[in-house]
Computed example of a mutant assay.
Amino acid sequence: MTSNQLAASATAADAALVGELLGRYLLALDDEKLDDAWARSLFTEDAVVTFPMSRHAGRAGLAGWHRASLAAFTRTQHLGSPPVVTVDGDRAAFRANVLTTHVHHPGTDRPPLFRAGTLASGEARRTPAGWRLNALSFEVLFTEGEPPRRT
């Protein structure tokens, strides 16, 4: 293999690892325990996550913030497209489409489902522990149903 081929192979491997971070994040929202170990496995210490209605800066408290956001629903499902990842040394940018279905708690005056189509984008950084998400944001492209009421 030439040096150019080796570099391209390493870049492709890094892009796959960054894409896997987003996939692991989306899957965890639906069926895993969101705790500090979860946050450490995915995010840098100074990560910023921005939802359409709220934002959290820093890894400290990030799991609790996610749990509080998800508590508005009885279940969720997050489906992500394969991300497009651009690696530049120890940093990477990514974008992916995400379709989410949120199931409202029974007994509310809301329709049972709230769906949203979003564009997820962000940045990842190579750390001593491997690639970690440094910035993650979601831009709503469409919704169906009613979101939960703000409390």
Results as ranks from 00 to 15, higher is better:
residue 129 A to M: 07
residue 39 A to N: 01
residue 47 A to Q: 06
residue 62 L to E: 11
residue 116 A to S: 15
residue 97 N to E: 11
residue 45 E to C: 02
residue 97 N to Y: 12
residue 68 A to S: 14
residue 47 A to L: 07
residue 54 S to F: 02
residue 112 P to V: 11
residue 122 G to R: 10
residue 79 L to T: 13
residue 68 A to M: 04
residue 58 G to T: 07
residue 127 T to F: 02
residue 137 S to F: 06
residue 3 S to F: 03
residue 71 A to R: 02
residue 113 L to W: 01
residue 54 S to Q: 12
residue 66 H to S: 06
residue 146 E to I: 00
residue 39 A to M: 02
residue 85 V to Y: 11
residue 148 P to S: 13
residue 1 M to L: 01
residue 131 W to A: 09
residue 7 A to K: 04
residue 96 A to P: 06
residue 41 S to M: 00
residue 9 S to Q: 08
residue 142 F to R: 10
residue 53 M to A: 09
residue 94 F to I: 11
residue 94 F to T: 12
residue 68 A to R: 10
residue 120 A to K: 04
residue 108 T to V: 10
residue 12 A to M: 05
residue 94 F to E: 11
residue 37 A to V: 07
residue 131 W to S: 07
residue 139 E to M: 15
residue 9 S to K: 00
residue 41 S to G: 15
residue 30 D to K: 04
residue 27 L to Q: 08
residue 122 G to H: 11
residue 143 T to C: 13
residue 63 A to L: 06
residue 106 P to K: 00
residue 100 T to E: 14
residue 63 A to I: 02
residue 40 R to E: 15
residue 34 L to G: 00
residue 55 R to Y: 01
residue 104 H to E: 10
residue 128 P to G: 08
residue 20 E to W: 04
residue 114 F to P: 10
residue 147 P to A: 13
residue 27 L to I: 02
residue 117 G to L: 14
residue 71 A to Q: 06
residue 139 E to D: 14
residue 8 A to M: 09
residue 104 H to N: 06
residue 62 L to W: 04
residue 144 E to R: 00
residue 110 R to Q: 12
residue 46 D to P: 07
residue 96 A to F: 07
residue 143 T to A: 10
residue 62 L to Q: 13
residue 142 F to G: 06
residue 1 M to K: 00
residue 40 R to Y: 03
residue 110 R to K: 15
residue 118 T to I: 05
residue 136 L to Y: 10
residue 63 A to H: 03
residue 53 M to N: 08
residue 85 V to Q: 11
residue 1 M to T: 00
residue 31 D to S: 14
residue 23 G to W: 02
residue 14 D to L: 04
residue 118 T to H: 10
residue 100 T to Y: 00
residue 111 P to E: 12
residue 23 G to E: 11
residue 142 F to T: 09
residue 20 E to Y: 01
residue 121 S to H: 15
residue 64 G to V: 12
residue 74 T to D: 03
residue 11 T to Y: 01
residue 68 A to Y: 02
residue 27 L to E: 05
residue 108 T to Q: 11
residue 139 E to F: 09
residue 96 A to H: 04
residue 103 V to E: 10
residue 68 A to D: 15
residue 24 R to E: 09
residue 55 R to D: 05
residue 151 T to I: 10
residue 14 D to E: 07
residue 103 V to L: 13
residue 132 R to Q: 06
